[in-house]
Design a protein around this nucleic acid. Sequence first.
RNA 1: GCCGAAGUGGCGGAAUGGCAGACGCGGCGGACUUAAAAUCCGCGGCCCGCAAGGGCGUCCGAGUUCGAAUCUCGGCUUCGGCACCA
Length: 846
Amino acid sequence: MTERARIDRYQPTEIEPRWQARWDELGLYHADLADSTRPKYYLLTMYPYPSGDLHIGHWYIKTPTDAIARYRRMHGYNVFFPIGFDGFGLPAENAAIKNNVPPAAWTMKNIENMRRQLRSMGATFQWDAEVVTCLPEFYRWNQWIFNQFLAAGLAYRAMAPVDWCPNDGTLAREQVEGADRHCWRCGALVEKRDLEQWFLRITNYADELLDFSGIDWPEPIRAQQTNWIGRSTGAEVVFRTAPDEHQAGGNDLVVFTTRPDTLFGATFMVLAPEHALVERLTAPGQKSVVAAYLHQARRQTEIERLSTDREKTGVPLGAHAINPVNGERIPIWIADYVLSGYGTGAIMAVPAHDERDFDFATRFGLPIRRVVAAADTTDDAPLDEAYVAHAKGERLVNSGQFSGLPAAEGLAQIIDWLAAEGTGKRAVNYRIRDWLISRQRYWGTPFPVVYCPIDGIVPVPDEDLPVLLPDNVDYAGSGVNPLSRDAAFLNVSCPSCDGPAQRESDTMDTFVDSSWYWFRYLAPHKDDGPIDSALVAQWTPVDQYTGGAEHAVMHLLYAREITKMMRDVGLVEQDEPFLRLFNQGQILGADGERMSKSRGNVQDPDELVQRHGADSVRLFLMFMGPWDQGGPWSPEGIGGVHRFLNRVWTLALDPQGREGGDPDAGKLPAAEDAAAAERSIRMAAHRTLRVVTDEYDGFRFNTMVAHLMELANSLFRYRGTEVAGGPAWDEAIRLLLLMLAPAAPHITDELWNRRRAATGQPESSIHAESWPSVDVQATATETREVPIQVNGKVRDRITVPVGIEPAELERLALARDRIREVLGGRTPERVIHAGGRLVNLVVREG
RNA sequence: GCCGAAGUGGCGGAAUGGCAGACGCGGCGGACUUAAAAUCCGCGGCCCGCAAGGGCGUCCGAGUUCGAAUCUCGGCUUCGGCACCA
C-alpha cells in the first residue's frame, strides 16, 4: 500500500456542490443592508444578457470579482455583491420569430439555466437581491423614471434624421459602427431617415461628462468617452447670403470653426446637402445639377462609404455669401463632406489651412489663399498641401488689419472684432448627439405615453403604471414590431380628455435598463418607488465595478448620464455611479481568435467544471495573465493549477507522507537543523502573506497564484521531515489555506474543516475567518546574499549580515578571489553600495 | 489620419532604476511501476566550451545613469477605439 493511498483523493466534483449548498444554508454571503456598523463595500459586476449559456468569458470577469468579494469580507467589510439579468433584447425576439416561442418564456428559461451555471462557479452572489429587467416589477420603474425625465424636459420627442437599420429599426448613434456605418448587432448598413423619435438630453451633460475627477477609471475608457463627446472650441461666425438674380439674399449662414484666425482665407462656403437653405439658394440654372447631387448623396449613404480616402464631390448652388471680415463675395457649394449633424451643417472653407477644403478646392479649381505663415515663410509662399501646423513664430498674413499678428493673438482679436460687429462669438461644439431611445421592437419597456388627437403627447399617469407588455403577440413570422398592430394594446382612452387615443408602440432601448439597475438591487421588489432612498444614500455610489471595455461609449457613458439626470430630478444625490472601474481583458479561443460557434473554438465552462472542478477553472483564469489583458484559452494550462491544488491537498492532509523519486525525501536541507527549518517555513509563509495581500489589493491575481504555488513548493521540500506537521508547518498550512480561500473557495473550506475535524473541532467555514496578519519578526533575516558587480556586471556574490556597514561590505567584496581576478590590479574609482542591496565596483576600462 | 494600449525564452507571463526570465505550460532526463497513467525529483534564453567560465541577450536606433526590460528622444510593429467632426 503506497503512502498516497492513505488519504482520500482530491475530488472536486464531490466536494464543490456540497460546499455550495452549505454556504447557502449558512447565509454567509448575505449582506445585511441595514447594518452600518461595518464599512460597506458595494461590489458590482456587469449583469449578463440571458442568451442561455455562460461562456468562459463570463467566468473570466465574474470569478476574480467573486474573489474580491470574499477577500473584502475577510477584512471585515459588509460586502454587497448582487447579480441580475439584462432581460430585454433582440435575441429573444429573433428566437420568438424563428421557433414560435414567446420571448418571455425563452428568456426566463435561459435565466434558469444561467442561474445554475453561476452557482456552479461557487460565486457568492446575493440572490435575494436579483433584478430581472424584463419583469414588470422592474420595467414599471423605467416608465416612472421616464415620466420624471419628461416632466423635467430631459426626455423629448423630435423629428430628426436618425440612424436606421433595415433589420433593427432606429439605433442610437453609439450603436452605429465603423466607417461604413453598420449596425452593431446585425452588421447591416445603416441609413438616415427623418423620423419622430424619443431622445434623452445627454448633450446637456457634455461638459460634466468630460470631468472624471473623483472617479478612478482606466485611461482607455476615459479617452474613448472624451473622444466621443468631442468637445472643440472656436467661434460661430455669421455669413450673410448675397443678393443674386434669383434670390434677394440677406439670410444668415452660421458656421462653426475652430480656426477663426483663418477667416480671411475663406474663399468659398460649403453646406451639407441636407441644409435648410439649399432649396432657396439654388439658382434656376443649377436646379437639375443640385437635384441630381442630392439624390446621389442620399443613395451614397446606402451604399458603402469609405470615408477619408474617398474623392470629394460637390456642386455649386449658384449663390454667394459675404465674408463678414472683408466683405468678399464667395460662392456657396454643397458637398457631402460637410455633415448635417455636426456644428451648423455649414462651413467656411479655408483651403490653405484645412486638408479637406484644400482637396476640394484643388479638385474644383477654387482659389486658395494663404493667411497663416510660419516664421521662415513669405506671405504668399505657394502651398502644395494645406498648412495646418501650429508652429512657433507663426503670423497672420493677407488678413487686413490683423496681418502681422502672431496667430494665437490674431485668433483672439478676430473673435473680439466679430463680437463687436455682432457677426460672431466664441463657441463650443460637441460631437455627441442626444441619445435616441426609441426602438421599433416588442421585447422592451413600453413608453408610458399616449397620443391624443386633442391633447397631443400625454404621459400615462404614475398610478396607471406599468404599461404592461401584452403576453401573447403575433409575430406573423416577421420582424415588424407586433405591438404596432396589436389593437388591444394600441387603442386606449386619453388619460387627459378620455377621448380615443393611441399608445406609443415603440419600446425603450435596453440600455435604459442598465443605466440604473444597480440602484434597484438594493430594493428589487419595492413597489412604491424605483429606489429606496435611504439604502441608496448608504450604499451607493458603487465602490468597484467590473466588466468589459466594449461598453465604453454605450453602457458606461449612459450610466453616468442617467445618474446625473436622476440627481437633477431629485432621486439620488451623487454625481457619478461607479467610483472605481476595472475592465478585464477578453478570453480568446485556443486559436487566438474571438470565440464563436462558427469557428468551433468556444470553450464550454460546464464541461471544464465537470473535468477539473470549479476551483481549478477559477484559479486558472486568474493565473493565466494580468486580469486586464485576457488572452487565448489554453487547454493544457489548466492542468498546472489542478496539480497545484492537488499538492495543497497533499500538504494539508498528509504532511508526513513521502513520494518515491526524491533521493533527499524526508531529510532536512543540509544546512538546516529542525529549528532553522521551522524558521525557514515561517519566513516563507509570512513573506508570502505580505506580498499576496498586496496582490489581492491590486487585483494582480496571476502573481498572487504564482506566489502561493511558490509557498506550496517550499513546503513540499519539508514534507516527510521531522518538522512536517509541527507548529510552524501547521501555521504555514493555515496561512496557505486562508490566502487561497477567496480564489479557490471549495477546496480550502474542505481542507480547513477536515483539519478541524482531525483535532476534534466543530465545523466552521473558512470564509467566516479574518484575513491573517503578517508576523514581521518571522519575515526578518540575519543574513543576505549580495551580488558584486564590476562595471555593472555581476561577477560574484557574498552572504553578509543584514545591516552591514558599507565600508565593511566593500572590504569583503574587494577581498574575494574572483573579484581580484576580474579587477586585475585596478583600483575602483567609485563604489556603489545601493543601500546594502548590491555592490558595484566602477573601474576604468582597459 | 487621430486617440489609447502593448512589444521579454518554444508558449502564457514575472521583474517599473539594482542578480532578466519568478510561477506555470510544453520539452528533456531520472525515481517509482511488470508496463502505462498518476505522482515525485532534476535540467531547460542564445552562442562558444568537457567543465570552470566567457560573450551576447528584454522590437530597432540614440541618450541619461555607477547601473536601463524599466526613464528621455526618434523610429518600427501589433492590438483596440474613432474616422471627411470644420
